[in-house]
């Protein structure tokens, strides 16, 4: 049964990946990309790597693809202009695609000899998450921390790039607003008749 599940999921992944570049509407492209991510998560579940599958859904589908969708929806993309120059870019695209394909084929044939039939999704541990944690926090601790620092620097960079202090912008100060008392805002007057305040 798992074999049928694999073929169904694999077909969906390939078809939706093709649709990502074939769809005319960019929003449809992103939606097909999301479908491809989600179905790949299904493939990961099939080989027993459920932790990776869930992470794929949380990180890529739940966060990254949402940003993609945001950007594509907000940009006013001209569909006709987008399709122009397709032929001039085609050779480069084919070249990059061929290189990727060759790399994947070589990598999978090198791996096949060792791994076919005795693939273990969680080596040396009870569950997937434990296996990954053990490797990540012992063997690759330094690289893991370095990756964290790189992300932190990127985050600070993004904030610095977008932070602007424009003068004359009305800002809300919540502390100021919630600490307001009745005596600050009201003043009771008792004007006498015909005189006003």
């Amino acid at each position: 049964m798992a074999v049928y599940a694999f073929w169904i999921l694999a077909t969906i992944v390939v078809l939706s990946a093709v649709m990502v570049i074939a769809a005319r509407n960019p929003v449809h492209s992103v939606l097909f990309l999301i479908l491809a991510f989600f179905t790949s998560a299904g493939l990961l579940v099939l080989i027993g790597a459920e932790f990776l599958a869930m992470l794929l859904v949380v990180v890529y589908v739940g966060a990254v693809a949402v940003l993609f969708l945001f950007v594509v929806m907000m940009l006013d993309v001209d569909f006709v202009e987008l399709k122009q120059g397709f032929l001039s870019y085609l050779p480069f695209g084919l070249l990059v695609g061929a290189v990727f394909l060759a790399e994947i084929v070589m990598a999978s044939f090198a791996g096949l000899e060792n791994h076919v039939g005795n693939f273990d999704a969680s080596p040396g541990a009870e569950t997937n998450a434990e296996a990954i944690g053990q490797v990540m926090y012992t063997q690759y601790m330094l690289l893991f921390q370095l990756a964290g620092i790189v992300l932190l620097v990127a985050m600070i960079g993004a904030i610095v790039l977008t932070l602007r202090h424009r003068p004359g912008v009305k800002r809300q100060s919540i502390a100021h607003q919630t600490s307001r008392r009745r005596s600050d805002a009201f003043e009771l007057k008792d004007p006498s008749s015909g005189q006003g305040i």
Partner: peptide, 14 residues
């Protein structure tokens, strides 16, 4: 599921 919490989190993020 062994990753039940994560599954719920993933689905609700969708």
């Amino acid at each position: 599921l062994n990753v039940g919490v994560l599954y719920l989190f993933a689905i609700s993020s969708l």
